[in-house]
Design a protein around this nucleic acid. Structure first.
Lengths: 154, 154
DNA sequence: TATTGTTATACTCTATAACTATA
DNA sequence: TATAGTTATAGAGTATAACAATA
């Protein structure tokens, strides 16, 4: 194989030849995750929200009144790193951090009315994106397959 | 549902309840990718090598003599960020960066003999890890399914 | 003693701009 | 003019240590 051909294969399609060599789960997983998150970030840019912030809103909506540390732990975020994130969402008027009578150390997280309508728009964008992914995968059954396989790796 | 039950479901298994709500490809993909890369990093820690460095060695072994920028592009690494990585591998005696007569700007990357035997050990660890993942997935056919589905998302 | 939120800090990864020497 | 390697720098994301208030 000529150097030029090798170079073409090496760089073609962001590493296709390379994938054959590395061949593996870790590499393709990373590639797919980056690709999906870039789509996610691009779509949500219109709402000026990041994936992690969206995840927080979803969780607070589904379990209102939980403590910061509970939401953070559920998302695998250290509570120290969660502070700025929660304060940012509060400063934008999307969530409230209320005092709890039973534990004056803790903040109970709730969505504001503005936060609820904001989340509704975000969920709509997300649903649309999920449909795009399902189409790419080849249908809902393929999506279930993928989720099952990913679950086994986690 | 009582608050206590909700809290248990919220934090159980690093966000299982949350996954039902977020429900989606992006979230599970991120979780699986983090889990797999943590295993990868843990196993490769014994060789004091990181996933990206291993990928570079594999690529240089398969395509010796390529330029830094070609290897970097194939791995999706900016060439500016690739400099320290390549210099580190050279400082450890794993690769050489040779002058090219045809282009005095470029560095051609090659494995050293030490680099080759090092890579052999790394590949063995990697193969073992890949077998672990295949077992978790439920067999080689499941692995092919997963790689196919990930490909479609990329 | 342990936990909650918080600050400070550091380390990795990633992204961009600008420089040099070559082409 | 454009490209290869390089430097500097800045932004995310993530990790730990330590503190005050509270349990």
């Amino acid at each position: 194989m000529s150097p030029a051909t090798a170079a073409a294969k090496l760089t073609d399609e962001a590493g296709v030849q390379l994938e054959e060599s590395l061949g593996l789960i870790g590499y393709r997983l990373r590639r797919a995750q980056l690709s999906v998150f870039q789509r996610f970030a691009a779509v949500f840019e219109t709402l000026a929200i990041r994936p992690a912030e969206y995840a927080v809103l979803v969780l607070v909506d589904d379990s209102p009144g939980r403590k910061q540390s509970e939401i953070a732990a559920a998302l695998g975020i250290k509570r120290a790193n969660f502070v700025a994130l929660a304060q940012g969402l509060e400063a934008r008027g999307l969530i409230e951090r209320l005092n709890i009578a039973s534990d004056r150390r803790a903040n109970a997280l709730h969505l504001t009315p503005v936060g609820r309508s904001f989340l509704a728009r975000a969920r709509a964008l997300h649903d649309e994106l999920e449909r795009e992914f399902i189409e790419r995968l080849g249908g809902p059954a393929k999506r279930e397959q993928l989720l099952d396989l990913l679950q086994r790796l986690t």
